[in-house]
Every structure is written in C-alpha cells, then in structure tokens.
Write a protein that binds this DNA or RNA. Structure first.
Lengths: 226, 226
DNA sequence: CTATTATTAGAGTATATACTCTAGTGAGTC
DNA sequence: GACTCACTAGAGTATATACTCTAATAATAG
C-alpha cells in the first residue's frame, strides 16, 4: 500500500479511536513509523488529510443513499438504508465529534459538508415519500415531511455522541457497532405513529430487533447492585 | 465583581463565542487584562473553570425542569419548559460543542453530566406523562415514552450544532437566539401525531410561531436566483 | 503599627504542535 | 554512468499552551 493511503487509513483509525483533537500529525507519523517530513510530503497539512477522509465518507454515504427513482422501495430497502448510514457513521465516527471545529478551520469542508447535509436531508425526505407510495407509512404534507426528515437526521447524527456521553460505561470501554445500531430503534420510533395498519406489525418487529438489550446502558444513579 | 466571577463570566463569553478549543487560559487572562498567574490563583486549571461553568448550567436547567408533582401542567407550562431549555442551551452553548472532549478530560464532569442527562430524560418523560394526564397528548406505554423522550433530547441538544454546520450563512454571521428557538418547532413536530383532537389546533398554532421564517436557512444547491 | 491573609503582576518554563528544510535513497531511463 | 523523479528520514523551528514561581501589593485583624 502506498504511503499516502497508509496515512489516510492510520489517520482515520487514530481519529476514530482518540478524537481528532488528540491526534497530531506527529502521532500519525509515529504510528506508521515514518517521519513527519514524509507525512508532509504527501499532505500539505492536517486539514488536507481530514478533507480527503471526508470525501471518502461523503462518497460512501452518497452511494448508500442513492434512492431509486423508478421502482418502489420495500421494508428491506429501509433496513438497508438505516444499516448503511449507521455503518458509515461508525467508520467515520471521529468526524461528527469535532464537526464544528473542523468546519471552522476549513472553508472547503464547510461548504461541502453543508451540501452533503442537504443531500442527506433530501434523501431522507425521498425515502419517506416512497415509503408512503409503498403504503408503509401514511403520506404527509411536504412541510411535515421536511421537519420529520430533519428530526431523523438530528437523531442519527447525534446518536453516537449521546452514547459516548450518557453511557454508563467508563471511557475505557469503547462503543460497539451493535450499540450504535440501537440508533435505528430510535429512528424507527419516530415513524411509529405514521405506520399504516398493514405494515405496523412488521415495522414494529423490525424495530424490536434493535432494541437496547441492556437497559442499564442509560441507567442513572440506580441501585449499585444492578 | 470579584476576579473569580469575572473569570467565569469571561470564560463563558469567550467559549461561547469562539469555542472552548480556541480559547486558552492566556486568552481569558488577556481579555480581562489580568495576569495568567492571577487566573491560576483562582483556578487550578482550565478544567476547573469549565467544571464550575457546567455546575451553573446544570443548576439552571435543573431549576427550569423542576416538574410540579401535584398540579397538572398546561400548554403554557410546556411553552415555558421549551423556551427555558433553549435559553439555557443558548447561554452555555459552548458546552455541547466540545462535549466529548470535555468529558474525556474530566472524570467529575463525565459523571455529573451523565447524571444530568438522565435527570433531563426523566423530566422530559414526566412532561409527556403529565401532558397525557392533562389530555393534551394521548397516553403512551412506558417504553414508547422513554424512546420518545430520548428523541426529544437528541433533537434539542443537536439542534444548535445543526444550525451552525448546515446553516447557509457564513461563519462570520453568528447565530441568533431566535434561530435557535426554531428548535422548538422541531420538538413540537415530534409530538404532532400524539396530540388529542381537543388540543391539536392550539399546539399546531404554537408550533407555527417557531416556524423558520426564511426557508433558505436550510436551502440547498437550489436555484441561484432565489 | 505589626502580622497575616487574600490577591495580583509578570516573567518564566516544560512540553507540544504544526510544519519546514536539507539531504538524501532507490528504481527506472537514456 | 549521468539523470530524473517519486519518495523518505530526521533534525530543526516558530509559536502556542497550560501552568509555575517569586515577589509585590491591598485588605484586614489585633
């Protein structure tokens, strides 16, 4: 593998593991056992590394969220969309963590991310539309559909932060992909009231699959013995 | 005003304005025209400053979210809760921005914040319960109510980040409290399907008040002509 | 006044951070 | 062998960051 690609891969790994803020270019170089100079031969600066990683992320999500225009969508499609989006979120999880700082430091990234967000919101909205076409949910007026799409987006993008901050586990215990996907449970919760009678049971069963196994994950001051 | 309080106030102001990550203790001291040594006489380190600011924030929100046990709650109460929570979020808006890093750097803060989150979730859940008691929304089974409360929390705490990142405006144009409160529109969107017939119109009218005035705020690549 | 305590200034420090500069190496080409 | 060119090493640098130290000043108590 080319050094350039190794740098991108190692950066992503380190960023995901310890947060972009805690990882310096020297860390990345040391992790790969290359010199800082070598790293800076391949990338002008840290921002450029992050930007390229974002482009990968963007490409991945855009690929997943390519909603077919002709054919109707099914419950399987919905499952695929949700699973894929959370997979993407997991693979590039450092990104949303320091999002505001990253966007403040890089104009290109800021602009691209804004467009990316809007594409995602459109995709979510189209999914709602097609779910209604397929008779899975009741059709909604445009305005409600956009507001709901936005709520879905907020839940999806904030789910990981919630887990990491409100989680009962200590910092050492890292998150698992399974826990992350409990976000799907939350997203499906948003759709419950709009389900049609004919699909209600199926969707509720799907949702049940993602239900948090250990309720203690959001446990409070609760009994220590638990 | 005592130097100690001035430090807390200036820190909050600077953190809110430019992000905790971009503000050093030296910045804070310079802003107040005091010496770094003076600052460190009053606070052991930067974390301690942040921790004390969090305690204020916590106190404020706990005060607002003190749900009365005896009397039923009204729509006015709901409005008050929403307005207050977003006011709090606004006043301490730096906090959620760098949340993960802050919690990673300070165990006390991590623990306290976790409990704080759980108290908030409980409060939201109790509000739902009492809204149902008051006949404003339909009663929900416990499990659905917790999942919905969590969604409300996710929307509330992520709303600001969304505005700052997806906003069409440039970085220089700062957020206004009015824009922030459009988050109330999003929260009320979550409740729409559960409204009772007798209150539907009133709540929809309330929601309308917070509707984003300029739809361009979430505008996409849309027609340049506007 | 004297002694004590709270507060402040301001220079200083160890470390980190993002990044630069010079000097190469090794594979291929003519 | 001379030359190019992608790639790499490693020491070095300017600046920033969080924080410390010493000494001085203001406030207060006896």
């Amino acid at each position: 593998m080319k050094t350039r690609d190794k740098i991108l891969l190692a950066s992503l790994e380190l960023f995901n593991g310890r947060g972009e803020r805690n990882i310096t270019t020297n860390h990345i170089a040391a992790h790969l056992a290359i010199s800082p100079g070598n790293l800076y031969y391949h990338f002008r600066n840290k921002s450029d590394i992050i930007y390229e990683i974002f482009l990968e992320y963007e490409k991945l999500v855009d690929f997943y969220l390519d909603i077919p225009e002709e054919r109707p969508i099914s419950l399987e499609d919905l499952t695929f969309y949700l699973e894929s989006v959370f997979d993407g979120l997991w693979s590039y999880r450092f990104f949303h963590r320091d999002l505001e700082y990253l966007l403040d430091s890089d104009r290109r990234l800021r602009q691209d991310y804004r467009e990316f967000t809007n594409r995602c919101l459109d995709a979510i909205s189209r999914i709602f539309e097609k779910l209604a076409d397929a008779g899975i949910i009741q059709p909604q007026p445009d305005e409600l559909r956009s507001a709901m799409s936005l709520n879905v987006w907020l839940v999806i993008t904030n789910w990981m932060a919630f887990l990491k901050t409100a989680h009962a586990l200590e910092e050492s215990t890292s998150l698992t992909l399974t826990e992350l996907k409990q976000g799907i449970y939350q997203v499906l919760t948003l759709e419950i009231p709009y389900l049609t009678e004919s699909y209600r049971e199926q969707v509720m069963a799907l949702r049940e699959k993602y239900r948090p196994r250990l309720p203690e994950s959001v446990e409070m001051t609760g009994s220590a013995g638990g």
